[in-house]
Design a protein around this nucleic acid. Structure first.
Length: 817
RNA sequence: GCCGGGGUGGCGGAAUUGGUAGACGCGCCGGAUUCAAAAUCCGGUUUCUUCGGAAGUGCGGGUUCGAUUCCCGCCCUCGGCACCA
């Protein structure tokens, strides 16, 4: 074999072999344990970036490892192909989004193949193809029928100059990215999915996901934000109206000193009719974007409405304010304000000189200075009439009972989670399959008229969606026979597509149904891998869709992903690689120069997958160097032609030690790849083994036999990570069988045995000496050996030994004074 | 602002269940090889040191025979915050 490592030649040869034999195509096999390994599919933005390479390298290592465990492994790949950047490219370069997207897909597919990922390409799908999105249109109409879809108004970013809705990303420092105009909040009608109907199940089932990181489960639980509280109606003075609020702290209800409503609230609108100052304020409240950050960090402002409401318990009159910190879209659009016990209310009260009343005192009897801050902990009620002396929990019940008895409120479970708005006023997305008839009724497009195909032969004249002015798309007879109707021109949120693609991979060729029984063979996904930035939205929506599909009888699983690996980001000079920062590194030139194996190896070696990875050009060279050393060691051994025969009974101590190293490495790598997913330490362990083999003297048959055992072990252990070079070495070592189907190595217990163990001896917790003890030594013998050690004698001389701690197999700690 | 991570040599990182801090790699220094260089190989590499040791895992405190690991309080930094994907 060649003495030189030539990755270009090796990799293209191995890849051709895989392709010709369709090596990664799988079908359902009831006799084998299945393993569905999925990496989050990419948005086809143009070319692969380092984050993709990292994500897909991790998924590929896990897939190949599982295959060597004898499992029936499916690893598919596809394209999350709808999205905003295609429209940006269309506007900028006058290229249709479909053309741009499909060209990007072609290029990126080539890159993935060049990296040697073990995908079943027969399952490839692109979400922008009608064959894919027709089923989510159909699914939407089923949900509509079941009442899980509804229409309501909600706020969007509005660019008053370009007369268009903007995505949050298109709002730069409160201004439209193209026009530079100050963005406004505007309410428009949009479609929603009732995800809140599933809030309890989505929360409870997090318990069924022990294979997910705790951080992700915590974030999802906090996002859903289940709270138990009280809904209370406050009568509006001189009116029949009631103002409904929701509170999680009914125990503080006696401390209300004012109330507040959102600018869009009907009471505020009504009050502003004859009040120019109020009108101006309400208008001012509309400026700004829609993000939660903006809402939470903006300066809190308000104006009194000169309306009073009656306290449901005391019947006192309370002034009503309008404020920008209350949101119409969240809860009832009105809040009770208790400045003594809520920090935001406290700050607002200070600003507008509103009274602050203490009705809760700390239960430990300490004092809280209300002039410094609100007291937000629970405690004992005070200044609260008949509720005085109750603790917060008892007061919650007493007050809830009171309002329920007096029919002015009731206990209610609330969620921070809001229903999912799926309408987008954009072109490059899946058309929402709705036709509005002339009576203003929204009708689902009948199944036999699906898919509603997005016209792709279009041009962007301005920046708004071309189908919004395309009469041949819009005008259509209503399906109820009522005459001419109009198509919905909004498209789905692209999260809609990515919420079920994992299921479609199981049966991408079915043109009669969304899913079939093959989905029940493969699902749930055994291992899902993707960026931590998807911890909440994408993963929550995919969980939600799984439950919807289950309830429509399309599949059997409750959860989509059994195990989740959230990979960290790829950084350069400490910050995320991004075009705007100009610190991107294109993986392609590195693949061209060093080969796929080197790039894959570096990605897996530089840091554990959950952590961020700091990019290093010299680190890549280091990985390349290691592969060259592996090649050299192997070719020297193979070309030498001496295979040797291991005579276990005649092994020298150093031979025994080297062989022990090999089998320790097998256990270590198996644990690191199979259980811990710390590929970096797995690689380090193989490097240590290769270093040890390189130092070994080759004198007799045993030496050659151990060398061969070591090299074969290294090839097998590294094969999921660097599949090309190991395939070539495997063949050169004389194996006929394909490496991808070779059995994963098992350690020989006999090789791991050792008669003596090294133990550390500490004095007062500080390392002072090391001793070698027999494996069979008991605690007393170990202690005696430690005490008589020369160096230890020096440290305990003249001192009193107070205690001796022996941790078998590890250390002895002698405590002296 | 809210929710969730992270912080260890010059750098990436290791230490898996509270038990030897710095594995492995990069970089750097020295040496071998070479006319020379590249490549390769060998050795060294936390800091301070009176060469006995001492200090040291973002900062301050605590628990423990023993803390990178557990607890409390801070600082910095990264991800998400519902229309980027």
């Amino acid at each position: 074999m060649d003495n030189e490592y030539n990755p270009g030649k090796i990799e293209s040869g191995v890849q051709k072999k895989w392709e010709d034999s369709n090596a990664f195509h799988v079908t359902e096999d009831p006799n084998k344990e299945k393993f569905y390994c999925l990496s989050m599919f990419p948005y086809p933005s143009g070319k692969l970036h380092m984050g993709h390479v990292r994500n897909y390298a991790i998924g590929d290592v896990i897939s190949r490892y599982q295959r060597m465990q004898g499992k029936n492994v499916m690893q598919p790949m596809g394209w999350d192909a709808f999205g905003l950047p295609a429209e940006g490219a269309a506007i900028k370069n006058n290229v249709p989004p479909a053309k741009w997207t499909y060209e990007n897909i072609d290029y990126m597919r080539g890159q993935l193949k060049r990296l040697g990922f073990a995908y079943d390409w027969d399952r490839e799908l692109a979400t922008c193809s009608p064959e894919y999105y027709r089923w989510e249109q159909w699914f939407f109409t089923q949900l509509y029928e079941k009442g899980l879809v509804y229409k309501k108004t909600s706020i969007v970013n509005w660019d008053p100059v370009d007369q268009t809705v903007l995505a949050n990303e298109q709002v730069i420092e409160g201004k439209g990215w193209r026009s530079g105009a100050v963005v406004e909040r505007r309410e428009i009608p949009q479609w929603f999915l009732r995800i809140t109907d599933y809030a309890d199940e989505l929360l409870a089932d997090l318990e069924k996901l022990p294979g997910w990181p705790d951080a992700v489960r915590t974030m999802q639980a906090n996002w859903i934000g289940r709270s138990e509280g009280l809904e209370v109606d406050f009568k509006v003075e001189d009116s029949e109206d009631a103002l409904r609020i929701y509170t999680t702290r009914p125990d503080t209800i006696m401390g209300i000193t004012y109330m507040a409503v959102a600018a869009e609230h009907p009471l505020a609108k009504a009050a502003s009719e004859n009040d120019a100052v109020l009108r101006a304020f309400i208008q001012e409240c509309k400026s700004g974007g829609t993000t939660e950050v903006e809402m939470e960090t903006m300066e809190k402002k308000g104006l009194p409405l000169n309306i009073n409401v009656r306290h449901p318990i005391t019947d006192e009159l309370i002034p009503l304010w309008v404020s920008n910190f209350v949101l119409m879209g969240y809860g009832t659009g009105a809040v009770m304000a208790v400045p003594g016990h809520d920090q935001r209310d406290w700050e607002f009260a200070h600003k507008y000189d509103l009274p602050i009343k203490q009705v809760i005192v700390p239960s430990d009897g300490s004092d809280h200075d209300l002039s410094e801050s609100a007291f937000t902990d629970k405690g004992l009620l005070n200044n609260s009439a008949q509720f005085d002396g109750l603790n917060s929990a008892d007061a919650f019940n007493a007050i809830a009972d009171f309002v329920e008895k007096n029919r002015c409120g009731n206990r209610k479970v609330n969620y921070r989670l809001r229903d999912w708005g799926i309408s987008r006023q954009r072109y490059w997305g899946c058309p929402i399959p709705i036709i509005n008839n002339k009576n203003g009724e929204a009708l689902a497009v009948p199944a036999d008229q699906l898919p509603v195909v997005l016209p792709v032969d279009i041009e962007f004249e301005g920046i708004s969606s071309p189908i919004k002015s395309m009469s041949e798309f819009i005008n259509i007879d209503a399906p109820d026979g009522s005459g001419p109707g109009e198509r919905e021109t909004d498209t789905f949120d692209t999260f809609f597509e990515s919420s079920w693609y994992f299921a479609r991979y199981c049966c991408p060729d079915n043109d009669q149904a969304m899913l079939d029984e093959r989905a029940d063979y493969w699902l749930p996904v055994d291992q899902y891998i993707g960026g931590i930035e998807h911890a909440i939205l994408h993963l929550l929506y995919a969980r939600f869709f799984t439950k919807l599909m289950r309830d429509l009888g399309l599949l059997k699983s409750d959860e989509p992903f059994t195990n989740l690996l959230t990979q960290g980001m790829v950084l350069k000079d400490g910050s995320k690689m991004s075009k705007s920062k100009g610190n991107t590194v294109d993986p392609q030139p590195l693949i061209d120069e060093y080969g796929a194996d080197t790039v894959r190896l570096f990605m897996m070696f530089a840091s554990p997958p959950e952590q961020s990875l700091e990019w290093s050009d010299t680190g890549v060279e280091g990985s390349f160097r290691f592969l060259k050393r592996l090649w050299k060691l192997s070719s020297a051994h193979i070309n030498d032609g001496k295979t040797g025969v291991l005579e276990k009974s005649s092994m020298t101590n150093s031979q025994r030690e080297l062989r022990r190293k090999i089998h320790l490495t097998i256990d270590k790598v198996n644990d690191d790849i199979g259980r811990r997913y710390t590929f970096n330490t797995a690689i380090a362990a193989v490097m240590e083994m290769i270093n040890a083999l390189s130092r070994a003297e080759l004198k007799e048959s045993n030496d050659h036999a151990i060398m061969r055992e070591g090299i074969e072990t290294a090839v097998l252990l590294l094969s999921p990570i660097v599949p090309h070079i190991t395939d070539a070495l495997w063949k050169a070592l004389g194996h006929e069988e394909a490496l991808i189907d070779a059995a994963w190595p098992k350690s020989d217990p006999e090789a791991l045995e050792q008669n003596e163990i090294e133990m550390v001896v500490q004095v007062n917790g500080k390392l002072r000496s090391k001793i070698t003890v027999a494996k069979t030594a008991d605690q007393k013998q170990i202690e005696a050996l430690a005490m008589t050690d020369e160096k230890i004698q020096q440290h305990i001389e003249g001192k009193t030994v107070r205690k001796t701690i022996v941790i078998p197999g590890r250390l002895v700690n002698i405590v002296v004074s």
